[in-house]
Write a protein that binds this DNA or RNA. Structure first.
Lengths: 197, 197
DNA sequence: GTAAATTCCTAATATACCTAGGCAGGGTGG
DNA sequence: CCACCCTGCCTAGGTATATTAGGAATTTAC
């Protein structure tokens, strides 16, 4: 009978699409096999296990995500870069919830070493903040706050956590303004750092 | 033979403990039954399904979480309340990862109506921010930023996402300082709101 | 055009979810 | 005090998913 023409890459790509539809945590070998019209066992020629599949999806998703992020912040600095980063971040997370969740999966150092996307995603925030003139360890602290705020935002938004009437997009913009102010008035390790109220 | 003495409450409590050990997404009827030394089918006298079990755990966890949060911010205002809230938040999330994850689960309006814990958790942040004098819609925006930052932080910390050498706790304190500054210099809807650098 | 490699299959095991129906033990009415 | 019944827990069984072993068929390579 006609073969489905599976390859590891095609399987992983389809898994990523599936993740965007049903959630990263809900991708199964069975569903993927059904999608290709083959038996479950057939997929094991291409991926070792569900866990392996998830990891590969994570690597793929990180590559895609990093691509968007890097395109967004290229040639920008300061507030401009912050805004561009944030919009690219939110857009990707909302458009590709499965892939986005995949990028947040915990991965081993070995996988990290082979995933340019993940490394790129780690390097982007500090690069983006360069124009704010923060030195270590403030830079690390600031990056952590931003990562947290962005991740928290899209996670809560994606899970329908903002039930209010106020448009989420507007709150997001205001939050960015506030973060910009925090970055410009960063409480460096020495002083108390209270700006005017 | 001797009965295990199960009740819905006891089952849900044990499920919450199990969630703290293996993760909220990994609680199973089977594991819970093993823990009680009964057969899987026996649990269905007390909960309708895994989904029902999860929802009940979410309600229980929200109650516990709200208790800690409310105790922490009672009688405090402004930065003092912010700090207390943040520490209670982080501590609960790290100490009870399964319960914390449960509180973040999407729940239906009907469940929400019957979960005082959830309602309390929704009401706490705006109450805590009262002393910052933010009016709507700024208050909503500020609450969203805080919820995002806190949630993002503990999620990333719990999944070992902060690989740097800088202590997470210290970054968390600095992030709080920065958020405090953002709150005191909140960019209200009318002006551009840039504080001194 | 045959040999090797690879794709996909059947078959089988293990675990989890869930339903239907049964037995027995502890509280309740006579 | 004892028969009764409610209900906690059980056995049995049907479904889905993950995974392995080994075989057949198709593609590829020489």
């Amino acid at each position: 009978m006609a073969r489905a023409g599976l390859t590891a890459d095609r399987v992983v790509e389809a898994a990523a699409d599936l993740a965007d539809e049903v959630g990263f945590g809900n991708i199964t070998i069975s569903a993927l096999a059904r999608r290709f019209g083959v038996k479950d066992a057939s997929l094991y020629s291409h991926v070792k296990s569900v866990q392996d599949l998830r990891t590969r999806v994570a690597v793929l998703a990180a590559r895609d995500f990093a691509e968007r992020i890097n395109a967004a912040i290229a040639g920008r600095a300061g507030r401009d870069a912050l805004t561009a980063f944030a919009h690219a971040y939110r857009e990707f997370a909302l458009k590709h919830p499965g892939r986005y969740a995949a990028t947040q999966m915990e991965i081993s150092p070995e996988v990290l070493a082979r995933s340019p996307g993940h490394r790129s995603l780690i390097e982007a925030p500090p690069a983006m903040l360069r124009a704010y003139g923060l030195a270590e360890p403030d830079l690390t602290d600031a990056v952590r706050l931003l990562r947290s705020a962005f991740h928290g935002y899209v996670v809560i938004e994606a899970s329908a956590g903002f039930r209010h009437s106020r448009p989420v997009r507007t709150s997001w913009e205001r939050g960015l303004d506030a973060l910009h102010i925090a970055l410009e008035n960063w409480p460096s390790s020495s002083r108390e750092g209270i700006a005017r109220g």
